[in-house]
Simulated assay, not measured.
Amino acid sequence: MIIYVPNLIRKLDKMLDLWTKMSKAVGFDGLTYIYQSAAAAYDDSWDKSGFDYGIEMNPQYINLLCKSNEPQRIPFSVIKTVRFVKRMFHIKRSIAPFMYKHKNVRRLDYDVCWGNIISHKPVTDKMIPCAFTDWDNTPRHRMNGYLYDGVSVEKFQYYFRKLLLKAQKEYPTDMVFVFAWNEWAEGGYLEPDERNGYALLQSVKDALMEYK
């Protein structure tokens, strides 16, 4: 049984131990834990030993790695400090409007991002590769958001096939994560729509059937 933990929580090690104990009490052999935060993968301030896998949550994961394609202009260390201060003073309001001052929505290149994903080498033997169909978080962040130009079903199909071959050769797991099923607020989804129908899902099926 797999437990997918989307965000880090306090006293995480105790929670994982408790969940494992509870799962065994009802007859399971145990639990497999996976974290997905792109920033968490590069953050060495927390203990990842309780997790079996980490997801290369793209496109954020590769953007944090490849500075030339980096939409996150604020250093990660500054973001961590701000989060600490917000927790200390119980500040709930977002400070994004003060950290970002963009006159235009940032537009990145879909092919460049995917090229970085395909050329990237896994940093540990616990990472799961990740494909992304699209990304556009302007519905959430408006002018502070960013999106990708050059997106198409055909390109996703092409790159997804390359990622499957890469996973077979370079990763110790047979899993590939896809962002996402229905993340409409960030423009990433496999769910059928009026524009593409079932084409994205068909792309995934065809590639899996081809490479077994």
Rank of each mutant, 00 (worst) to 15 (best):
V5H: 03
K67Y: 05
K21V: 01
D17S: 06
P6R: 07
D29R: 04
Y61Q: 04
Q36H: 10
G54A: 13
V5K: 06
K21G: 10
T20K: 07
K11P: 09
K14P: 06
M57Y: 14
I34N: 05
Q60V: 13
D13E: 15
C66G: 02
A41H: 13
I9P: 06
A38C: 08
G30H: 04
S68F: 09
D29A: 00
M57D: 11
S23N: 09
W46A: 03
G30S: 11
F51S: 13
A41F: 08
G30D: 02
M57I: 11
Y61R: 04
F28H: 04
D47Q: 09
F51D: 08
Q36R: 05
Y61C: 08
I9W: 09
F28C: 10
S37Q: 13
I55D: 02
Y4L: 15
L18P: 03
D43W: 00
L31R: 01
A39K: 09
D47H: 06
I55S: 10
S49Q: 03
M57G: 15
K48G: 01
M57R: 13
V5W: 14
M57S: 04
D44Y: 04
N58E: 09
A39C: 03
N7S: 06
M22E: 06
P6L: 15
D17V: 07
G50I: 03
P6D: 05
K11T: 12
G30Y: 03
Y53C: 03
K14M: 09
S49N: 00
T32D: 05
Y33S: 01
S23Y: 10
M15F: 01
V5F: 06
M15E: 08
K48T: 15
E56P: 11
M15D: 10
N7Y: 15
T32W: 02
L12V: 09
S23E: 11
S37I: 07
F51N: 13
F51L: 04
S37D: 10
E56C: 14
G30R: 03
M22P: 01
D43N: 06
C66A: 01
K14A: 14
F51H: 15
L8G: 12
V26L: 05
V5C: 11
L64C: 12
M57F: 15
Y4W: 12
F28D: 01
D52C: 09
P59H: 04
Q60S: 08
T20C: 01
N58Y: 06
L18M: 08
M15R: 04
V26A: 01
I62F: 14
C66I: 00
G30Q: 12
L18C: 14
D17C: 07
I62R: 03
S45T: 15
G30L: 03
M57K: 09
T20V: 00
Y42V: 02
K67S: 10
A38W: 12
D47K: 08
L31A: 04
R10T: 12
D17T: 02
M22K: 08
K11C: 14
Y61N: 02
S49V: 02
V5D: 10
S23T: 04
A38D: 05
K67A: 15
L18E: 05
E56M: 15
F51R: 09
A40D: 06
T20E: 00
L64A: 10
Q36L: 00
